[in-house]
Design a protein around this nucleic acid. Sequence first.
DNA 1: GTATAAAACTAACAATCGTTAGTTTTGCTT
DNA 2: AAGCAAAACTAACGATTGTTAGTTTTATAC
Lengths: 189, 189
Amino acid sequence: MKPESRKEEIIKAAAILFKEKGYSAVTMRDLAKAMGIKAASLYNHIQSKQEILSTIIIDLAEEFTTGMNQIVNCDKNATKKIEHIIDLHIDVTLRNSDGLASLNNDWMHLEEKNLQYFEKMRHDYEENFRNIVKKGVDQEEIKPFNIEIMVFSTLSTLRTLYLWYPKQKNIDADLLKHDMISVLLKGVI
Amino acid sequence: MKPESRKEEIIKAAAILFKEKGYSAVTMRDLAKAMGIKAASLYNHIQSKQEILSTIIIDLAEEFTTGMNQIVNCDKNATKKIEHIIDLHIDVTLRNSDGLASLNNDWMHLEEKNLQYFEKMRHDYEENFRNIVKKGVDQEEIKPFNIEIMVFSTLSTLRTLYLWYPKQKNIDADLLKHDMISVLLKGVI
DNA sequence: GTATAAAACTAACAATCGTTAGTTTTGCTT
DNA sequence: AAGCAAAACTAACGATTGTTAGTTTTATAC
């Protein structure tokens, strides 16, 4: 049991509240109550409400960026790369499903600098995904459907995992990965 | 050109703002500015901020409920029923993509009564969807993958259409339906 | 032109927001 | 026991929130 700093505890509690009501609807007094202290005491550990949000989102976005870069640079065919992307999303979701709510729904409340940084990471991520699918179509690994629709459909499912996973009791991570790959790649009929 | 009431104009403007920043982050002064009037003037047309939100969400939820009930009661096989569900989502998205943002992200800010009503409609909708897929599996129309994953995956994509559709310029509705059915049902490899 | 209703306005309210300043408590180290 | 830093506290600030009351403007019908 690693000694978790008070700041990390606050950020974790905040992520849960942000997931339930969204960043704007959660007050510093709500967060303090969840921590069992007064709102002003939070400021012994964090600089601002905004700092909490940007920590949650930017850390996760960088995790996805790092993971995607490894996948892009690995020596596999398109299908295997897409399987790795599915793996990546499931891994991150299992580790921090609360934070993913903020990444998905509250990124627009980031301030200027971090907002730009986030939007660039998201854009690059999607672009990398798109290129992998394109290459798969060119090499006739992947069916020549509308590429935008394939990318969008897959990403939608992976990005929404955070909502669905916590409701499934005791689902095995490897089984989840296997089934998700089947459904997303091979279709249901 | 039907005469759109001032109230309808306000709700439409609100849906756009809610989509951009979420219900809690949009103030009545923001909404008034978007309408070119003062905040207090809004109250000549609407009762409260909450009324705007519940109008947006409940109307849409009832639309989905009605559509799903027709599909459930029609005399088709599971595959055709799923195709109809895809149709339904695309139709609603084309008609009111702004409002769908609130339905997806701000339903938790509904008050007690409407919150319960909404949650029941959503639960029934998902249950109907699940049963259609189950029947399809039983009759060997649909592959025997994990049902929860198939339902979740399809619904995630359809629910997120509102984010993606407005970015695609001039995409034809029928083409979109056709390709979406292909990707969601037949898989990409 | 005058009456009437719709729709805008100004001004303000009580509540709540994120945050700061200054102080006290807590828990460890010596 | 004393000293000290971490972490809690109380009290309050200026700004903003949704909303109300009362008034004025605008547009339509006669």
